[in-house]
Design a protein around this nucleic acid. Structure first.
Lengths: 333, 333
DNA sequence: TTGAAAGCGCTAACAA
DNA sequence: TTGTTAGCGCTTTCAA
């Protein structure tokens, strides 16, 4: 492999001049610039990325932590993140945590080893107290999932409103017995619960403990929920289910059909996300639309502004962005 | 940030000894090893990744080129690739080409700039002649898509058999008028076409030009196909469609319902991939199952063996792995 | 078993 | 406008 030294020799110039050409610096005469280009081409020279990183202390890479890419929500988010990153000369390092605390920690490590310039969480597995120390190694932004009581930049949705809209719609459609699929472990999950309960309360209803399903995320989880519902007393079981994701909703619907239930007649189902699958299901899925890709774009913009401010030696400024969320009415309710 | 020098000083030892401890070399007394560990902990020292890379000329990172992550086939493939990579201390750099030639080229570049140790294609956008020169910069493996006439390692499926099975099944079910959604641009696409035509030929049938839809990949593409079919003469139009992906099949089915067609009565549909969505559709989708995740695992194993052989200064040995493919019968045919 | 020293390939401050 | 020079932080001979 040719090095900058080889190019300099061949061009009859110094390494500095070659470096200036590589980095598009001013104050290089056109003639010498050409000399350098010729030499680079002749030697098939390409600057060594590790050397550049070591010297500049920058990687132009941003880590994005996602639980798993097989959940279609995240590829969409990544698409938004990546668009803005690439527009600004940055690269993404996509890290699947598999919802595993240790894996997440190992990725956080990349910030301290200077393998990445910044890090974006789209979900958080560890306690914030164990994450926080890593903030001194580089900028972090929370996207989607959040912690409102800590000093970190956040781009998120109004989850309270999301579930409120869903519950209200079910109630408007005459449902009184509504099951809930949620997650108690995250603030996002607790906010959704808040909105859901609020809508119920305004209608004089409350959430039954036995109708609360916790910690669900997959199609199979959804199927299990449906089977659980079927095991309940037929005279006292939910007529509608609010779910935390289109996957779970799809699982419920699939299993319902399997068991001979008709949707929405026997059971109304409402999803969350508005993934492509929502429209394809039969009946098509009523769901809460998240502006996923836009959330990605905005997150990356916050991250890049932090990286830029950092260069100006300004302290990081906390930004909180909240994006709108809406109900998409289809046929499953 | 603490450096190795700081650790050495605090421990009262040399940089070399600290380095040996970091890299688990033998010949360090337990006592000094502890001294080093203590110093590292005290200083919160973490080796700088760029420096290690520059010095060792290794990144322990492998680039994986995918067209886009929003096609669920690829996250599944990546999962397999990543499992094996992580098991062996390697990291994945996932690169979305957006099916764009220039983007692909820019990622190939990472091999020459030593940003990655090896590169895996899951689809190829450029001519092989423009890709080939990059092989001298590091090992490459083709996964899923392939070029049988070039000297590169490949892990792939028997595509001829895949489409043969699908076509044969449709014919067995009594279909004579079968539309085909394919791709002429890749060898994979041409092989599928081969198998399809072969099955037809054995039944004394042939593929109508007007029933050939080229270059389709998304749900919307599928919808368009269905509309095209409906514009045909009702007395001379396909009774079945063979598609190149579950997405396209889903689009066709969705639009068919929209237009009042019943599946499979009015139109039989067969997919390709067996993604989660295949089972969820109504009716559920008959499709060709690809052992996607396993294909990923095997690909990474080939890549790692090349990386290892490289260290032994052996020339790369071309490996070709072909995985089985099967027909999953459901309700859409 | 340990340390000294060289150098991976690059950028940037400084001098000219 | 260009070149000289000093490292960035690490690993790895080589010698002790």
């Amino acid at each position: 492999m040719a090095t900058i030294e080889d190019v300099a020799k061949l061009a009859g110039l110094s390494r500095s001049t070659v470096s200036r050409v590589i980095n598009n610096h001013p104050y290089v005469t056109e003639k010498k610039r050409q000399l350098v280009y010729d030499a680079m081409r002749q030697l098939e020279y390409h600057p060594n990325s590790s050397a550049q990183r070591l010297r500049t202390q920058k990687t132009n890479t941003i880590a994005v932590l996602v639980p798993r890419l097989t959940n279609p929500f995240f590829p969409l988010l990544v698409e938004g993140l990546e668009e803005v990153a690439v527009e600004n000369g940055f690269q993404l390092l996509i890290c699947q945590t598999q919802a595993n605390e240790e894996k997440e920690l190992s990725f956080l490590h990349m910030l301290t080893t200077k393998q990445v310039d910044g890090l974006i969480f789209t979900s958080i597995e560890n306690e914030w107290s164990t994450v926080e120390p890593y903030m001194q190694s580089g900028p972090m932004v929370l996207c989607n999932e959040y912690r409102s009581d800590v000093n970190v930049s956040i781009v998120r949705l109004d989850q309270v409103k999301g579930s409120y809209l869903g519950a209200q719609y079910l109630i408007d459609k005459g449902h009184q017995a509504i099951a809930y699929c949620g997650a108690t472990t995250s603030e996002l999950g607790r906010d959704r619960e808040k909105g859901f309960i609020q809508a119920l309360a305004e209608a004089g209803l409350s959430l039954k403990k036995e109708w609360y399903f916790d910690n669900l995320y997959s199609i199979d989880c959804g199927k299990r929920v449906l089977r659980n519902i079927l095991e309940m007393d037929p005279n006292d079981r939910p007529t509608a289910v609010f779910t935390g994701s289109d996957e779970v909703a799809a699982g419920i619907m699939k299993e319902a059909r399997q068991k001979g239930l008709s949707i929405p007649k026997d059971l109304a189902v409402i999803g969350f996300d508005d993934q492509p699958i929502a429209e394809l299901l039969e009946p098509s899925l009523t769901t809460i639309r998240q502006p996923t890709k836009d959330m990605g774009r905005q997150t990356m913009e916050v991250m890049l502004s932090m990286l830029t401010n950092e260069q100006k030696k300004h302290p990081y400024e906390r930004k909180v962005v909240e994006l709108p969320i809406e109900l998409i009415k289809r046929e499953s309710v």
